[in-house]
Structure formats: C-alpha cells, structure tokens
C-alpha cells in the first residue's frame, strides 16, 4: 500500500532525517514519532505529494491527507465541506451518510453551521468525520490529536482501528500515543554526518552520479 525505500526528505539543501525504509501493508497502523523538527510533517507532506525534495523512493496508493491546516472551508457548513471534498473522489453527496459520520464524531448539532464558527476541537471532529466518508484506503494524518478532548481521542482510536481492520492503513504523526493496541512504530532519527565531516550540499555531485 505504501513502500518507502531509503527515503530522505530535504529542505534547504539539508537532509532532515536518516534514510527511512518501511513497507506499510493493509491493516497497519504506523505511529510516526520523532523530536520537534525531525521532519515528521515533511515526510507526510512528501508522501502526499506536497513536498518535492527527497532522495530515495516511495510508492503509494491514493491517500487521504490531513495536515496542520484541516482543509475545511470556514464559510461552509460541514455538509457542504464534505460535498466538495468527496467530489474529488468522484462521489456524490449523501446527506444521510454525512449526518451519520457527524453523529459518530459528536458534532451532529453543528451540521448546518459554518465551520469558522466552531471551536478548534469541533473543527477537528468535523475533519475526522470526513475520514469516515472517504473511500481512500491510506490515511496520512499529521498530529490529529491536537485540540481534541479525551472522549474525541477515544473515538479517533476506534475509527482508526476499524479502518485498519477493514483493510486500510494509517500513518499518523503524533507526540502523544494513541490508545491503539496493535501499532508499528516509525521513529525519525537525525541525519548522520559522513565520517570525513563533509556537509551535504544539496547538489548532486557528478562523481556520485557516476558511481551509481
């Protein structure tokens, strides 16, 4: 479903972390950890196609991505937001399903209210309801627990477990552990300098290319 081979994300000519290789299969919940600035967000953005500077390779199916910015249009209600979002997947709006999803994440009473009028936690719950509606099997989630209360975290863990059991896969960057029983850990470590202390320059050196 998602394969990373010696993947290293780069920013400003700097390698963010040591090469990462992992094979994420259907049913996997992968918790992506690492210190602040280790490159968790950049890795997820790379996998979603929003960051183009990396070395190594990855192969991925279509994914559902949720970054720090949730991607909810503040002027629109949750139902309207679902409609355009699912339009990308070529699916029609289905009010009953939308309401069910909102019920599940506990914000049914906000169904007809513009998202900008909700609290940060409520917006997160609306975004979570969107996961339930999407047909994408791979979810890439960046710090989804932010601003959520304990009950919402429980709901999230349950949704993730169900998604994995149904044959999906989740990669989730987080600082606080999610109460999910079966998980794989992927920790991003800092880059190791080469023995002679030379710094990566951001250029692909011709000599190196020839050696390949």
């Amino acid at each position: 479903m998602l394969t990373l081979e010696e993947l290293v994300c780069e920013r400003d000519g700097r390698e963010l972390f040591a090469p990462v290789s992992i094979d994420v299969r259907a049913g996997d919940y992968v918790e992506l950890t690492g210190a602040n600035g280790a490159g968790k967000s950049t890795l997820l953005r790379t996998l979603a196609g929003l960051h183009s500077r990396y070395s190594g390779a990855f192969d991925s199916v279509d994914c559902l991505f949720q970054g720090h910015r949730l991607g909810l249009d503040g002027l629109l209600t949750p139902l309207e937001n679902f409609a355009w979002f699912l339009g990308f997947e070529g699916r029609d709006a289905d009010r009953e399903r939308f309401l069910d999803a909102l019920q599940r994440t506990g914000v049914l009473n906000k169904a007809y209210q513009p998202c900008s009028e909700m609290s940060a936690g409520q917006q997160r719950r609306v975004a979570m309801a969107r996961w339930l509606l999407s047909s994408r099997s791979l979810w890439l989630l960046d710090e989804p627990l932010t601003a959520l209360d304990a009950s919402a975290q429980q709901v999230m863990a349950k949704i993730i477990v169900e998604h994995c059991q149904a044959g999906g896969a989740v990669v989730c960057a987080t600082h606080s552990e999610l109460p999910v029983a079966q998980k794989r850990l992927l920790k991003l470590e800092a880059t190791q300098r080469t023995p002679d202390g030379s710094v990566h320059s951001g250029y692909r050196d011709f000599a190196k290319v020839q050696d390949e």
């Binding site: 002679d196 030379s198 990566h200 320059s201 951001g202």
Partner: peptide
C-alpha cells in the same frame, strides 16, 4: 559559496 562544504 553554495558548495562550501564539498571536498572538491
């Protein structure tokens, strides 16, 4: 300037 750290 950009290659400052490189060996060459």
């Amino acid at each position: 300037n950009r290659e400052l750290g490189a060996r060459w």
